[in-house]
Design a protein around this nucleic acid. Structure first.
Lengths: 134, 134
DNA sequence: TATTGTTATACTCTATAACTATA
DNA sequence: TATAGTTATAGAGTATAACAATA
């Protein structure tokens, strides 16, 4: 048998994809993790930092630095929650929305290039299968 | 559309699998990366450190520490290449072969648990598709 | 008492640069 | 000059612990 481990396949597939998406995002001044944050905020805006962190399954302390960076780039803004002043509500700026749209297109293109080795059906199926595993 | 990014899916699928394989390997005193090294050595033993590194697509400096660890656990042994004394030939010890066999079974079981959400056909297909992408 | 954001800190994984010994 | 292994080091990315403000 001697086939490659599933862990190896997942790790290196991710690695190869990142080698495409990283450069693709460079013109927009963000990386994949930052785009993911913009994405969850676009789905449900505004979110508290902790809610955003939970949706991406990252630690809230990691989210602090991520939001710091995005705020520094003026892609998101923080404001205190009106009813619970422990919380920061984070929302996309206009510029953040534009960056999400353009960066998102760039990533989709990179994904298409990455998946070009597969027939379109299989590419869709791969995404579907991974989605069911998470 | 708003589906999750392929990068996110790959990253978190790997993360979840690691949460199963890590504990599964603990009784054998190794982690997934170390098992992967044992695996390439089993396929083509002996290999120079650099050849082993190339097969796993990791840096030769990373391989040094990895082999150090495995040698410390007496799972592999180094000896100088007879014709080129710059090279270290690395080979499995008997104990290394045993650990590979038992650890490999533990990982396969963890993979099966991870893939249990999918029909068997789809699980095999997922592996096949990932393999074609790398 | 518990929660949110924050900071300081440490750990893992990885790669780059420079060294050595060989070729 | 080039290559294999090694070491020192630095950069991501991540998490844990402790703190302040607020609930």
């Amino acid at each position: 048998m001697s086939r490659r481990r599933l862990g190896y396949l997942l790790k290196h597939a991710h690695l190869r994809l990142t080698q495409l998406t990283g450069p693709a995002l460079e013109p927009y001044g963000i990386d994949g993790r930052e785009l993911a944050v913009l994405h969850v905020l676009d789905e449900a805006d505004p979110l508290s930092q902790q809610e955003a962190a939970r949706r991406l399954r990252i630690d809230r302390t990691t989210m602090v630095a991520l939001i710091d960076t995005l705020e520094g780039k003026q892609l998101v803004s923080r404001r205190p929650h009106p009813d619970d002043r422990r919380k920061n509500m984070v929302e996309l700026t206009t510029r953040g929305r534009d960056t999400l749209r353009d960066g998102g297109q760039a990533v989709e293109e990179a994904e298409r290039a990455f998946l070009a080795k597969l027939p379109a059906d299989d590419a869709a199926l791969l995404r579907e299968l991974l989605d069911r595993l998470i």
